[in-house]
Design a protein around this nucleic acid. Structure first.
Lengths: 245, 245
DNA sequence: CGTGGGGTTGATTCTTATCAATTCGGGTGG
DNA sequence: CCACCCGAATTGATAAGAATCAACCCCACG
């Protein structure tokens, strides 16, 4: 949790500008959410379930996740956060946060209090709309995971997971580094680590993917997408409804 | 899909007023979303997955749900909507809706186009915030379902489901009418209808609940909540962060 | 009366979890 | 350099949970 040296600015506004034009004021407000950046080493907890609710983070670099620990010790990973995302958005309405945030890799992130976000909402309604959109998009990711866990078997789930991460990370490539061990993957998909191992082997044996350490290489994207029943429309959104800037 | 006789007004604004005070203007804008009401008989589709995206509904009375049908014919119920909810909120950002909306009981609902909602957003930023809050709360329901499907067995899932519906419907009571057959319940929880039957029987035999037709009676709420690992905090939200009205 | 949808029950099979043993690779300390 | 340890991954054997298949009941409705 040491101070970081080179916080790369404008991560969030760059993210939003994929969707729409931003005014200078809007950019300025968003950039304020990105300082000061701090470093959290892999495995560190950004905040725990009980205290420090109402704290957000902008994720500048690295991966993070939201985890829920059940009374019996089982874990469920609720969200995977990639650079440019805001961590904790949905928790804004809740007194206490039922989940905790954890760094999956070394992470640069900027903690800031609830009030900073509400200030933004009050100042520029248009950014409220953008955040509304962000939330709607996150919802569609959650929906897809519900379909995944409710109606697909282990191989399909894993295939779907791999494709989703690949597309969110770099849609034009076919490989990425997955900084999660197999028990974390299991906790994400509702599988045991042992079964993740077997299923990963199955996907390799069948020629869908190749895996060396944390490197995932998608060998046959169409086949993998077919297996997963993947419909990428849930990832892309449409901004017609936004106010003009 | 016949016109309804007595559309009870103010369903949405009543819902919002549980959270905060509304101005007359705000109430007026919200009430405009509730006319004209139409009736949809049980089982009817309000809109299908392909066309008519960008159509919302305010649910005045009855139950509805969002369903996703997979290529192989399996179904997953994504959301259960109860009176006072807005159907289709998260889909606002998407070109085409991957899910369809279906009436579970006879339903009174008011269809209206995307543009109506965006108008509201542009006119009163404060309602945008309220809708943001609504979305955040829906997200927490989805999160809970992910935990449910990922890490709980059939009995726990069913228990959790029953408690959630009871609390959303009428927290002070301990019984309600569940207008879903067992295969719909299965499609909601990711179980087969046969297994739902068995599990329901188990919950009865063990004295957690009683069931006659569609009447669910919770006999031992604490025990059921314990079994489900239910933490009701995800249902209640906190409005500190809202602008003054 | 038939007919059909929903629910129950039993038998069987399949998927996945659990438990246990083994390997592998990367530190660490002697 | 080697012995040791540790966490993660793999593999196999077994058990639990849930799906599937099939038979049957019940009852509302033509």
């Amino acid at each position: 949790m040491t101070a970081c040296t080179s916080p790369e600015k404008g991560c969030i506004s760059r993210q939003f500008q994929l969707d729409t034009e931003l005014t200078e004021t809007e950019k300025h407000l968003l950039n304020q959410l990105e300082q000061p950046a701090r470093c959290y080493p892999a495995g560190t907890q950004l905040t725990d379930a009980s205290n420090q609710a109402g704290r957000f983070f902008t994720l500048i670099s690295g991966w993070a996740c939201a985890v829920r620990t059940l009374p019996d010790g089982q874990r469920q990973i609720l969200d995977i956060f990639l650079p440019g995302q805001i961590i904790g958005l949905r928790e804004i309405t809740f007194e206490d946060n039922l989940s905790e945030f954890r760094a999956l890799t070394d992470v640069e992130a900027c903690p800031f209090p609830k009030s900073r976000l509400t200030d933004i909402f009050h100042q520029t309604p248009r950014l409220t709309e953008l955040f509304f959109m962000t939330l709607a998009r996150e919802q569609s990711l959650l929906i897809e995971r519900i379909v995944n866990m409710g109606r697909r078997d282990a191989a399909e789930r894993l295939a779907h997971f791999i494709i989703e991460i690949q597309l969110r990370l770099s849609p034009q490539l076919n490989h990425f580094i997955l900084p999660m061990n197999q028990s974390m993957i299991g906790d994400t998909l509702g599988l045991s680590s042992v079964h993740v191992s077997r299923t990963l082997k199955f996907l390799s044996d069948e020629g869908f993917i190749e895996k060396h350490d944390q490197q995932i290489h998608i060998l046959n994207f169409p086949a993998l997408a077919e297996l997963a029943g993947f419909d990428k429309r849930y990832l892309s959104s449409n901004q017609d409804w936004l106010s003009a800037s």
